[in-house]
């Protein structure tokens, strides 16, 4: 059974239809990527699945539970969270406080403490800067913090919205490396990316989104070799 199952999802912004009936699924343990150009509806899909913007019709089922109409915060309590586009770390809170916020659903102080130590091991830079206000971190460090913060809630499914945006090539490689590691540790990943080459390379399966519709789907390798993807997203 799929961990996340999205069926015929439609979203409107006023009279403009942003999603025209999207269906896809994510199986446990997979990395699944949605690729597409600006305005294709990638972020809308992510936000709508997460309950941040309302959908008009269609269903979202997570772990057998219909979460279509559930508010975002209760979806998080079910074990699914998202690293939003543009990272959106809490600029005025310290690195440490940001991580504490990530553990909002966790009640045990001892466990939170252990988890934070673990995040510092994953991201040594965050450990060095734990007392620093997040707004003073570099873009790359903020991305690390956003990912660490999301992992604090031990999501079964982690959604990442353009985690490589605005980062240097070296950092982009690092980010994809980390995502791969998250998967190895048992987290299922739903990724949204414009960097089609890098994201398809680590994906088990992927979907191509165009004008609010899914136009192509397949395994990461299949899509990497597809002429349409090559032409539209890989510059060749």
């Amino acid at each position: 059974m799929a961990l996340l199952e999205v069926k015929d999802l439609t979203v409107f912004y006023g009279v403009i239809q942003a999603l025209k009936g999207i269906s896809f699924d994510v199986n446990k343990g997979e990395i699944v990527t949605l690729i597409g150009a600006n305005g294709a509806g990638k972020t809308t899909t992510m936000q709508s699945v997460m309950g941040l913007i309302p959908s008009k019709s269609g269903t979202v089922v997570y772990n057998g539970v219909d979460i279509t109409k559930k508010p975002c915060h209760s979806i998080v309590h079910l074990g699914m969270t998202q690293v939003p586009e543009g990272r959106r770390v809490f600029q005025e809170l310290t690195v440490y406080e940001n991580l504490l916020m990530g553990a909002y659903t966790e009640k045990s102080k001892a466990k939170i403490k252990r988890d934070i130590e673990e995040i510092y091991e994953w991201f040594p830079r965050l450990g060095e800067r734990k007392k620093q206000v997040a707004g003073t971190l570099s873009g790359g460090e903020q991305q690390m913090l956003a990912m660490g913060r999301a992992m604090m809630s031990h999501p079964e499914l982690l959604m990442l919205d353009e985690p490589s945006m605005g980062l240097s090539p070296l950092l982009v490689d690092q980010v994809f490396e980390i995502i791969k590691n998250f998967q190895k540790n048992g987290t299922t990943i739903l990724l949204v990316e414009q960097n089609a080459g890098k994201s398809l390379a680590i994906s088990d399966r992927a979907y191509v989104l165009e004008n609010g519709q899914i136009v192509l789907s397949g395994t990461g390798d299949e899509l990497l070799k597809s002429d349409m993807v090559k032409k539209a997203y890989l510059g060749g």
């Binding site: 997460m50 941040l52 508010p71 975002c72 915060h73 209760s74 998080v76 309590h77 969270t81 998202q82 939003p84 959106r88 770390v89 809490f90 600029q91 005025e92 809170l93 916020m101 990530g102 909002y104 659903t105 913060r149 999301a150 809630s153």
Partner: peptide, 16 residues
């Protein structure tokens, strides 16, 4: 504090 800075991100942490 989190809500006052970014409602959406706070919701993603599970904040009601």
């Amino acid at each position: 504090l989190a809500v006052s800075e970014d409602k959406g991100a706070a919701q993603l942490m599970g904040v009601n």
